[in-house]
């Protein structure tokens, strides 16, 4: 066949495209389970990080038991500590038909408000209760997300973990660093009157060392105002939906 004819060109293109499409489809299907596992593992690791089990602690713990830190051990630890996972309705009641771990906040938040379910992970570590809430919002360039853990008073922050898709390296991307995340520990999200305040990232708040744990503020990163605002808004916006639930928790405690 004439290699410069239109028919040959079209046939050639069709064959090449089909081969490529089949190849990729097969590859994606074969690799999907491994990729999903990686994502679940990351999610479990991140959640456990907020209640004080960072990678190092987990590795040590596993080593002490003669185990290696892999998907299996991480899942075992996660199941051991996080006995309760709820998908909350906006009035704070539990929707039992939804698996909280499988909720993808990004898609969940696109649903109409009354259909949204808010996941909460409740841990029990040596008799202490922690509430871990997933966060999701917008940074300067793209999505930011994370987890925030509250102690059993549903007020004091135990720890946080942030992630981002495309914040500026060295500036906004610093939110994923330990020194930044550590600042949140001990902050309160409610003020003394019980009004919800969230946590604000602020520059020039006269508390750069972050010694005042009652001010609902931590020191923002210089040069990343918009990422910092994104984090502030994300915490405010997400936690707001858990207020009815927190209220119940506090009533039960009293």
């Amino acid at each position: 066949m004439d290699r410069n004819s239109n028919l040959y060109t079209i046939l050639f293109a069709a064959v090449v495209v089909t081969v490529s499409a089949v190849l990729l489809a097969v590859a994606v299907m074969v690799l999907k389970p491994a990729q999903e596992r990686n994502k679940r593992q990351e999610k479990m690791t991140d959640i456990m990080y907020t209640i004080g089990f960072d990678q190092e602690a987990l590795t040590k713990k596993a080593a002490a038991e003669g185990l290696k830190l892999n998907y299996k051990t991480i899942e075992a630890y996660f199941k051991k500590y996080f006995l309760k996972q709820y998908a909350l309705k906006s009035d704070g009641t539990i929707d039992k038909s939804v698996n909280a771990f499988d909720i993808n906040l990004k898609t969940e938040l696109k649903k109409p408000e009354n259909k949204q379910r808010y996941p909460i992970f409740i841990a029990d570590v040596d008799g202490k209760t922690y509430y871990v809430i997933p966060l999701y919002g917008k940074g300067l360039w793209d999505d930011i997300w994370g987890y925030i853990a509250l102690e059993q008073d549903a007020n004091t922050v135990k720890g946080v973990k942030f992630g981002h898709k495309g914040e500026t390296p060295g500036l906004g991307a610093e939110i994923t660093k330990k020194w930044f995340e550590n600042q949140f520990t001990g902050e309160k999200i409610f003020d003394k009157d019980g009004t919800f305040r969230g946590i604000t990232l602020l520059k020039g708040n006269n508390d750069p060392e972050n010694k005042d744990k009652e001010d609902h503020e931590i020191d923002a990163i210089s040069g990343s105002t918009l990422t910092s605002n994104g984090v502030t808004n994300m915490i405010q916006e997400r936690l707001k939906h858990y207020l009815p639930f927190f209220k119940k928790v506090r009533q039960q405690k009293n």
Binding site: N4, Y8, T9, V16, S20, L24, A27, Q35
Partner: peptide, 24 residues
Amino acid sequence: YIPNRIRIIVQLLVVATLVILVDQ
């Protein structure tokens, strides 16, 4: 066998397929 007129596109297709494979 590559028709000269669409050779760049065919090359791109080959490269893109391989890159997606590597990424996955």
